[in-house]
Write a protein that binds this DNA or RNA. Sequence first.
DNA 1: AATGTCTATGCAACTCGTTGCATAGCGGGC
DNA 2: GCCCGCTATGCAACGAGTTGCATAGACATT
Lengths: 183, 183
Amino acid sequence: MALEHAILVSLLEQPGSGYELARRFDRSIGRFWTATHQQIYRVLRRMETDGWIAAQAVTQDGRPDKKVYSAAEAGRSALGAWLREPVEPETVRHELAVKIRAAAFEDPSALIPEVERHREGHAALLARYLTGEQRDFPDPSALDAQQQLQHVVLRGGIEYERMTLAWLDDVLATLHRLHRHAD
Amino acid sequence: MALEHAILVSLLEQPGSGYELARRFDRSIGRFWTATHQQIYRVLRRMETDGWIAAQAVTQDGRPDKKVYSAAEAGRSALGAWLREPVEPETVRHELAVKIRAAAFEDPSALIPEVERHREGHAALLARYLTGEQRDFPDPSALDAQQQLQHVVLRGGIEYERMTLAWLDDVLATLHRLHRHAD
DNA sequence: AATGTCTATGCAACTCGTTGCATAGCGGGC
DNA sequence: GCCCGCTATGCAACGAGTTGCATAGACATT
């Protein structure tokens, strides 16, 4: 399980409450590690019990109080130990690929709108990534280690989206070709 | 849940036992949808109860008997209904990306062997994909609909591996750069 | 002769992840 | 005045997925 490690990284980069973490997971981090607020709150409680993180209650005006967590020394060394372990093979869940192969047993062209919707989502995400890159890393020669590592992960996201867009175009061309020949 | 649909697709392409399905998931299908034999046996039983698939006992010499499943009409129509539903957003779990951002809080160069091992794995997989493409789709102009759809999914895998290799080289270059500047 | 691997299926226990709901005050729109 | 959405946290129940183990005969290796 790496959710606790993803949370640790996020807290090391910037302390925050469960709610704030949930929103970070919805935005940036969620692009390579998803989590709901339920998972996050549960894991935060366990990590606090284990002494990986420390909580500080913050009273607020006009909105509910919150508990701001930050990474403790034990958490930091746990992260170091995890870093030295080999990665487990990633479990892939590519639903669209299943659907494309399934389309052979139905009308393949019925999948076209679905693939197009998918394509739009990836195009929008790529645009957001590129905007974020311009904003956060305008001068790549003036970055510290942390920013350079964040940047290389973002570049991975950008290349992934570019590749996916090209592939979805390939898929669409294939579906259109099958449609024409079925007439 | 799409495991049942992935199994349906696999059974429509070729009937088989739970054990055979588990091995297909280890090889080809597992590249875009993973599953253990436990999951597969459990889902197969449920699908048989629901009438999505039909089982036929096959007695064998020299090895245990098996139950060969094939997709039933109800399963086929369930697959069609699922095809017309919109895809849910994919849940991404990219452990290496978490580790790369975590490396900012440790010695980043300690991650180099890990990334290199990862890179070798992807290079080997790309080689296997390309061999498989040569073997299964030697003449792309002479494919039926099912093969064309299988081929376009394989091309997605190939492009994914190529992109990943290029990105991992980018990651390695970044880690080496950080290592030099830390001296 | 003993050990290990492959085929083939399954139980039991567990952890991980999701969904629905609840609370509760603040502010905005109709 | 009412409903909706945002911040902020949490319970309870369920479903998905993993891990360890068991059975059991056939065959290969040491």
